[in-house]
Amino acid sequence: MFSKKWMNKSTNDYWDKISNLKKTIENADAIIIGAGAGLSTSAGLEYSGKRFFVHFSDFADKYGLQDMYSAGFYPFETLEEY
């Protein structure tokens, strides 16, 4: 499938900005990356299955939890229990 819209810009059009970003990164003391759950998922983190039950079987048994994601939204009765 091809785009019906012609894209005029290429990497060459952004070369100065790319070079500037490279220099900025090289000179930085630290870099902070903001990311959501997709980053950990793409890195292979699984929110359910064997890993969940090995580490959280007591919670799974007591509350019927099946994965870390839904456990985060479980309506625990107290903050301490949460």
Rank of each mutant, 00 (worst) to 15 (best):
N12V: 01
A71M: 10
K50T: 14
L79D: 11
Y74I: 01
M1R: 02
A37T: 05
F52Q: 01
K5S: 09
T11S: 06
I18D: 00
L21P: 00
M68C: 15
D16C: 02
N27R: 11
D61H: 11
Q66Y: 01
Y14Q: 08
E77M: 11
D61P: 00
M68V: 15
S57R: 03
G38E: 13
Y82N: 07
K17T: 11
I31V: 15
V54A: 10
A43D: 15
I25M: 08
K4T: 12
H55T: 12
F53C: 03
D67K: 02
S40P: 05
Y69M: 11
P75E: 05
F2S: 06
F52C: 02
T11A: 10
I18A: 10
Y82F: 03
L65C: 02
S57N: 14
F73C: 01
W15D: 08
N12P: 00
D13K: 00
M1Q: 04
E81H: 04
I32Q: 13
I33N: 10
N8E: 14
S42R: 11
Y47E: 01
Y69D: 08
M1S: 13
T24E: 11
L21V: 05
L21I: 11
F2D: 04
D29H: 06
L21M: 08
N20S: 10
Y69K: 04
N27F: 03
A43P: 00
A28S: 15
S48E: 08
D58V: 04
G38T: 15
S40V: 08
N27H: 05
N12T: 01
F52G: 01
N8Y: 07
Y14M: 09
S10H: 06
G72L: 03
L21R: 04
I18P: 00
A37M: 14
F52L: 05
